[in-house]
Write a protein that binds this DNA or RNA. Sequence first.
DNA 1: TAGATTGTTAATCGATTAACAATC
DNA 2: TAGATTGTTAATCGATTAACAATC
Lengths: 206, 206
Amino acid sequence: MIKNISRAVIKRLPKYHRYLTELLDRDIDKISSSELSQHIGFTASQIRQDFNHFGGFGQQGYGYNVKSLLNEISLILGLNKSHNTIIIGAGNLGHALANSSSFNKYGFELRALFDINEKLIGTHINGIEVLSFDEISDFIKENQIDIAYICTAVSSAQSVANVLVENGIKGIWNFALVDLEVPKDVIVEDVHLIDNLCTISYFLKN
Amino acid sequence: MIKNISRAVIKRLPKYHRYLTELLDRDIDKISSSELSQHIGFTASQIRQDFNHFGGFGQQGYGYNVKSLLNEISLILGLNKSHNTIIIGAGNLGHALANSSSFNKYGFELRALFDINEKLIGTHINGIEVLSFDEISDFIKENQIDIAYICTAVSSAQSVANVLVENGIKGIWNFALVDLEVPKDVIVEDVHLIDNLCTISYFLKN
DNA sequence: TAGATTGTTAATCGATTAACAATC
DNA sequence: TAGATTGTTAATCGATTAACAATC
């Protein structure tokens, strides 16, 4: 994809993906932008614009073929191939993420967890081993890891990120409440959960 | 607040809050929009616009007083008073959220977890009891619960939401991968974690 | 008073929506 | 061919940025 697609568009793609998967499961093979609009909540116009950023996937007078549209969106999102992932920090959150089955369905395959706590090292979570953080460099290289989830305390998140970057990790999913500094070719997605609660709190008042 | 403030503005407030708290901890009592801009990454112009949606908190020629600005933002977000919360679903994710200490710091106080699994009922997580889902109506009324976190499977999320709504809950933090249908006076914030991974996957390709 | 920085208006930019010609 | 619905251009809307007068 050479064109610069806005982040807003990209953020809508997973929702399309999810709903189209559901349609496919229900053996529905055709959908129009207006039908999609009713179910998904975006306007039909926006839906057509979104798809046309990547080329026309539909057919005039007919609509979109569910299977091929889903396939195109999977390709755009890079979900056609699987990703090897690791978790750094095997605390409660690391545990929860390691146990999440839905990531596997999308091809995000957890290869290891890492921690510095001796008591955790060597244990298994959902069949995946917790390794010593000291081994992370070798592990990343040997296992072609694409994406790392940072589930550590705030105090160690940046130094963990540095190690990840040094070892060539290009995708970081950061759960620590800190803005990581990384080279700009490294993708960081932050999940600052407390921000969500603040939003709820704001709207409860209003 | 009568004016309709855009969601984009609200979503930036927690970041201001976080950075101002840090400044306060470092005993810095004054900051200008341009200094704030350097640290936080938004433009100085946007920062001033953001604050002026709620009234002028600064002083010309001086800047903003950290303490009073932080106080104003706390008030806007409704963080001056605490919120009673509950978690529905005491699985891995429920566990992780129950153990998160940062929510307490912002005044979100967990009062109970609920589950239907007999083995979990009666146990404690981080000192908070897991109760039977059957008791939820009484509990919500007796404990003035404001916000509920849905950490159940997709299949039960909507029915859980229905029960919450019936019992007057106005704020729902939904971790299940489903779009809940609720009356429009109920605030729902979704955390669809897989969407984040899809975004990372997209940008890794590009 | 002079310098600094806000508050606020105007200009720009980008995203969404509307409209309709193209075409299946 | 007639009807339906896309692809695409144009219009609108909203959010961000720039500029500067107000004022501490």
